[in-house]
Amino acid sequence: METVVKIENLVKRYDELVALDHLNLNIASGEIFGLLGPNGSGKTTAISCMLSLLEFNKGKIEIFGKEMTPTAYDIKRQIGVVFQNVAVFDELTVYENIDYFCGLYVYDKKERKKLVDEAIDFVGLGDFIKFRPKKLSGGLLRRLNIACGIAHKPKLIIFDEPTVAVDPQSRNNILEGIKRLNSEGATIIYTSHYMEEVEQICSRIAILDKGRVIAQGTKEELKDMISKGEKISVQVYGISEEQLAKMLKIPGVAGADFADGTISISMNGKSGGIAQIIEFLNENNIGYGRIASELPTLNDVFLELTGKTFRD
């Protein structure tokens, strides 16, 4: 697949603080690429460097095969950006805001009108075109922010934490919208510190910590990197010490504990151990009730790789 963004050994320092420490990324055309990391891990700095909003100390950024510089206007023309904070003018209406930002890329009035109307339809702001931003709710504002970034139909769209402080319904709408944009051909870079969102929509993910990529791949590849596997909980009426010891001999079972009527079983590596557990319970005439399976999350990946959670 064609590489859309190539970042090599990117270093950005703020005095003593190293915000990006030899960052390397390759983003292919048609991907939804997730940049996942806790606050302060360097996601927004990386985005700002990509957009040439920030000067960096070392490294190279190529977008669409050309070096990205502040004057690379032919590259900028193909990029859309949705910033973390709502980046619109309070004095303009919804329509005027989208029209203005689209006008920075598309000069033909007729074409622009069509694109603006399409963007309004896309984010569902048709009933609010004459509203000023201050009259919009948080969710609607986020939609306006997205419309301003995508109206000119860019090939590469960067979303920098677009769901911060957004209610669950609006968040789902935004995520669905991003998937739609991707299905229409846009390559997406999505930064977030919400691992669930990244897991939900991204085809490939890079986990950032202290300005470094600590892991990169699909979500399955990332989960395979850690020792922790599936965790299965089974409510039982009773189990003997003997049966519990026997359970540990099932292939893939790393550990089993019984407490308060529940057996907690830790599996090694990939998922798929639940069938074996049920079979074991039936064979040993162990009566059971509710069975729950918990797969490892990206937070577990982060925890294992860094020794801390996203929220730390």
């Binding site: 206007y73 910033f83 980046a87």
Partner: peptide
């Protein structure tokens, strides 16, 4: 001040029109 407002200004800077 309205035009130079931080985040909206960032959009201008990210656009293909020079600062």
């Amino acid at each position: 001040l309205a035009i130079e407002k931080g985040d909206a200004k960032k959009r201008n800077l990210a656009s293909p029109i020079s600062a």
